[in-house]
């Protein structure tokens, strides 16, 4: 194992709550085992801003705005294997609760009725990611190779999945690990 090149891994969170990332950190002492096998490219744990060529890319969160698409496409382009992790990435999840609400109503509620930051007006700053009319799961925007459901998936589940993948096995979750909540 040690002889081999380390697996390069990138992660990101789109429209998610970083819960899946927290769950990854929950593998605790196994993090050292993980670090022995992989090196991180872009992740919230590193300072790398753009994803370079990687073996595995892990995406948390659904696709809610234009910026999410740029990040996601960069991941897809650079990662040999793309994994969607968590309910948000796989179905839209909790952020997709807004899909039943008209976007105009969302904007009004946030910026007009609640009193936005700069008086009651809708911001038009190009720096702000522009939202889609709906939140989409990752697989509806790019091709996804593997899914790791859960909200979030447990640390054990993530560990099992990652070790399978890193060690070249077809990832397989036993029935107790397959959860959508």
């Amino acid at each position: 194992m040690n002889e081999q090149r380390k697996i390069r891994l990138a992660t990101c969170s789109l429209a998610g709550c970083f819960g899946c990332h927290m769950s990854l950190l929950d593998i605790d002492e196994k993090l050292f085992d993980l670090l022995a096998m992989v090196e991180f490219d872009r992740t919230p744990f590193t300072d790398i801003k753009h994803c370079g060529p990687c073996d595995i890319g892990i995406v948390e969160g659904g696709v809610s705005n234009a910026e999410n698409v740029h990040v996601l496409k960069e991941f897809r382009k650079n990662c040999k294997v793309l994994v969607a992790i968590g309910a948000c990435a796989i179905t839209g999840g909790v952020p997709a609760l807004r899909n039943n609400i008209d976007l105009w109503d969302c904007f009004q509620e946030v910026y007009l009725y609640e009193g936005g930051l700069e008086g009651n007006q809708i911001p038009n700053d190009p720096e702000l990611p522009l939202p889609f009319d709906k939140v989409y799961p990752v697989y509806e925007v790019v091709k996804v190779d593997y899914f790791l459901p859960g909200c979030p998936p447990s640390a054990d589940t993530i560990w099992k999945f990652l070790t399978d993948l890193i060690e070249g096995r077809e990832p397989k979750l036993d029935s107790a690990m397959l959860r959508y909540d």
Binding site: A84, V94, C151, Y180, D181
Partner: peptide, 26 residues
Amino acid sequence: NHICPACEASGNCQLQAAAYYLEMQS
């Protein structure tokens, strides 16, 4: 529109359980 994490039936739901049984990943 099934958002299991936000659903009170989650864990008692037969649609979800059938999906587990049939190994639905997405």
